[in-house]
């Protein structure tokens, strides 16, 4: 009996809750760690990056305005839906990163648990970094964190899932929206994650995922005047690129999260730095008196 012919998946971008191809009509070949062909992925253009920023901006009021409790529920839901695609993620991480199934499984487990960790922060971060301030006068004075807005994220190049989740979740937990450029050579877990996000109650536009090269999208995102912050994680090891992007980011004083010299292994429990990097502190004064 003849073997069944597989139906191959088309990997697309994720912008505004939809899955478009690149407007450029380009794609590129994605290979596994041994160089064997895995898939064609969409090759995002500069225009795709700008479209993604528009979608992300449009999603800010709804997402920033959602209750922290609601955002926590949505992030937890992402973990639940990822759990259902566990083996698919293991396949993709193992192939892309050249790992044994056991090692890939550990990374997928940790990635799911990391969503849970961040989900818990949604309604606690304000209690940890906010304050009421005992000013010397008849005023009630308090400081609360607020999301900065649209965050461009250059995801890590090596850690295709755990690194990805570790840079994406802290952006959206605080009420920001994200335009993320996936690892250029290992984009498949990011694309699968976009399918998870699309079915996890995450409103369209809150997370937008581009595949392709940093050369196309990163300069656009770093220079974009409607982007409020940028995470340069994906430039680890390329100090020249990182510096040029940081220079571009200075034009509208984007909040910049710099890349380390070499990409970390991401397994350690994160601190609050990546959450607070994308939060503004708002202080309110109000008189007290009859």
């Amino acid at each position: 009996m003849a073997e069944r012919l597989a139906v191959k998946k088309t990997y697309k971008l994720y912008v505004g809750g939809k899955f478009p191809r690149s407007e450029s009509g380009r794609s590129y070949e994605v290979a596994d760690a041994k160089g064997k062909f895995l898939a064609n992925a969409a090759w995002a253009s500069r225009k795709d990056a700008r479209d993604a920023v528009v979608a992300a901006r449009k999603a800010v009021p709804g997402w920033a305005g959602a209750t922290a409790y609601n955002r926590g529920q949505v992030l937890y839901r992402v973990a639940e839906v990822m759990e259902g695609r566990h083996s698919q993620f293991v396949d993709e991480v193992a192939a892309g990163e050249g790992l044994t199934r056991a090692k890939a499984t550990a990374l997928v487990d940790e990635s799911i648990d990391r969503w849970v960790w961040y989900a818990g922060w949604a309604d606690k971060i304000a209690q940890v970094v906010g304050s009421s301030n005992p000013v010397a006068g008849p005023y009630f004075d308090f400081s609360v964190p607020e999301p900065t807005g649209v965050v461009a994220v250059l995801a890590p190049q090596r850690s295709s899932l755990l690194g990805l989740v570790s840079v994406l979740a802290p952006v959206i937990v605080g009420g920001n929206t994200a335009v993320l450029t996936a690892s250029a050579d290992r984009p498949l877990p990011a694309i699968t994650l976009s399918e998870v996000l699309a079915t996890s109650d995450v409103p369209g536009g809150v997370v937008n995922i581009l595949t392709g090269t940093l050369a196309d999208t990163a300069p656009i995102l770093a220079a974009h005047m409607d982007v409020n912050a940028v995470d340069l994680a994906g430039t680890a090891g390329d100090a020249e690129l990182a510096r040029s992007l940081e220079l571009a980011a200075a034009d509208n004083l984007k909040r910049v999260v710099r890349a380390p010299e070499a990409e970390p292994d991401w397994i350690a429990e994160p601190g609050l730095e990546r959450i607070t990097a994308y939060l503004e502190t708002k202080t309110v004064w109000h008189p007290v008196g009859i």
């Binding site: 409790y69 926590g72 989900a119 818990g120 922060w121 949604a122 606690k124 609050l272």
Partner: peptide, 12 residues
């Protein structure tokens, strides 16, 4: 839901 999220964040 709220306290579930605190369980691994006691240090904070």
């Amino acid at each position: 839901f709220y306290y579930a999220g605190w369980a691994d964040k006691l240090a904070w």
